[in-house]
Amino acid sequence: MSELLAVENLGKKFGGFVALDGINLSVRKGERLGLIGPNGSGKSTFVNCICGTLRNETGSVRFEGALLDGKIAHQRTRIGLARSFQLPRPFMTMSVADNLRIPLLYTVNARSGPRITSGDAAARTHELLALVGLEAKALHRPSDLTQIEMRKLELARAIATEPKLLIADEAMAGLSQSEIDDILKLLMQLNERGITVILIEHIMSAVMSFSQRLVVFVSGRKIADGVPTDVMRDPDVVRAYLG
């Protein structure tokens, strides 16, 4: 398998606080990667730097071999890098279906290839909503959704960009076991279609069952990277988690 994402020596500071300290990470095409770490360990900052929401101070990010430096967020989305936000950020004045039309019109249509007509868009929106089980809510406003449905919408909007790499940032927090299983199944399905997935999660059972490889961040550094069961036996990781 070839390399999809290559992060080299990535660093970011907020004032005097070092959020990311020389992170190196390589993700292969089609891989399922789990990323864990205590609160404030830099996971979300890492996502933000990769997706262009924040600018990294040192290091570089390569996607399919191309350097991403200077590319702003929407351009990274268009080349196939999608993320869901930790706290769902739906477009509140639009219907649930329209929330998914935005990435279809602005990302999928911006790529070379056949353009999506408004009829196609309606069909695709429906398909995506069915995938996450929100068909019944298509015409509702996001404010009518429950917290869980909101997370599903967030994920669906990221999937709608037809990404090569999907970063799911704590998509399962607060969900019940059966809902977690639903989302895991969905992510597995996407992965089977060839989408590389980085799962950032606190719920260990989900991470362990999903990930082929596990990476651990502590205080902005990568302290472990490898086969999940080995990583969890690593004394550094045990110390970070159990104090």
Partner: peptide, 25 residues
């Protein structure tokens, strides 16, 4: 139009709009 649709996305949530591929600037 699509333009107005993008405007609305910016108004609702600029960061989410960017993540959805909207060229906000």
């Amino acid at each position: 139009s699509q333009l107005g649709f993008g405007f609305a996305a910016i108004r609702d949530d600029e960061m989410a709009a960017e993540a959805s591929g909207v060229p906000t600037l």
